[in-house]
Design a binder for these strands. Structure first.
Lengths: 211, 211
DNA sequence: TGTACATCAGTGAACGCGCGTTCACTGATGTAC
DNA sequence: TGTACATCAGTGAACGCGCGTTCACTGATGTAC
């Protein structure tokens, strides 16, 4: 075993990931600005000082969590917005995609919703940057659509921003449904119907924008 | 002076308000879950134990701040949405009303944006309740409008929610513009234009909802 | 393959500090007569 | 109006506790020859 290179590196990655996972778990019930370094290491089972081998501070860890939560989402964005099928069909699929993501990664979604306007500046900035990238990508997809013919750059940007904000609102809605004490499944369906309606209204506004 | 009744009560109110004001100031750069009771009393210049004469905890103070920030906003909501003039004119007026509110009360707006999904459950709940009241009020105003003829209750509710969310998004946008290091006035105008466009798109979607 | 040295992830003791909460108190304000 | 007593907003000392950070360390892993 001592001949395999990278054993040390692999172990380090593992500890780092354990710190990220533990922090994400603790952040379900508090915000980053009150998260203690000792809390995190205690949850992992390492000495408090081990934290410094991986992150400068909890704010630094938060920035890493932003990357983990949003970095892998870009491919999904593209496929959601890309203009293919019937509008109502596409909306239903987009809403279900969001619902599925929230169900699969509730802690990540909560973290982003919470820290987007939270008390830690570098984390807010990291989220802002990722969402700006999303908006750029959505805009690029929208531009390909025939419906967008004749749209100004500013109008496309506005619509892309509206879609990104709506995506976050919908995700928050599903998260609240997940947390509902009674009848969470009914809450989930209600959230899906509301989200679909809102996207449909935006879609209609889009179709008549240049009237 | 000793004959005037309510001197003690007036002084108590004054101290309570000083605690609220100091907390709001401190919350510009941190979130409620990391706000310390001693920080607040230090900023006011009273003993830490005086805090308990007014609030059970910082969470309790947070709930009071929600009331302060949103409680007085209900009349404004009504007038903003009420169907009177030309649509573009009304949109421009609504956007400027929001911009004015953010400029007048930036700390309150930041507090609501931050704690809406923050780490303190009773405060989240208080904000949720106030926003639900807003949505109800907006829905009642929308129902009066001729454009809403034939709309289902669920559709009206959806649209009201969309407007309330959009109001918060716009307020956040203006807040970011205020914080911009360079050219905040240009940022403010950019935010106003984006917000107006988004409201216009929603307005168009609304007009063609039953097509 | 074996040896000697370098690296570095994780340790554990120690520190000074500010925290929330308790308690008995003080003295101005309020009330009853 | 004056007096005797009650109320209660704010005080100040004290407490135990967990925090972030420092430091010199250990011992497994990695590297050079």
């Amino acid at each position: 075993m001592s001949h395999t290179p990278g054993v040390r590196q692999a172990q380090k990655r593992k500890t780092r990931q354990a710190l990220l996972d533990a922090a994400l778990g603790l952040l379900e019930e508090q915000s980053l600005s009150s998260l203690g370094l000792r809390e995190v290491t205690r949850a992992v089972g390492v000495a408090p000082t081990a934290f410094y081998r991986h992150f400068r501070s909890t704010a630094d860890l938060g920035v890493a969590l932003v990357e983990e939560a949003l970095g892998s989402l870009h491919p999904m964005i593209r496929t959601t917005v890309s203009p293919t099928e019937d509008s109502d069909e596409r909306i239903a699929r987009a809403v279900e995609l969001i619902a599925g993501h929230v169900a699969a990664h509730p802690a990540h979604v909560r973290f982003i919703a919470r820290e987007r306007h939270g008390g830690v500046q570098p984390v807010r900035e990291a989220i802002r940057e990722q969402l700006a990238r999303f908006a750029e990508e959505v805009k690029a997809e929208l531009a390909k659509d025939a419906v967008s013919a004749g749209w100004s750059d500013a109008d496309l940007r506005m619509l892309a921003g509206l879609y990104v904000d709506q995506m976050l609102i919908t995700a928050s809605l599903f998260l609240e449904a997940l947390e509902a004490v009674e009848a969470p499944e009914e809450e989930r369906r209600r959230a899906a119907r509301t989200a679909a309606r809102q996207l449909r209204l935006i879609s209609i506004g889009r179709a008549h924008w240049l009237d």
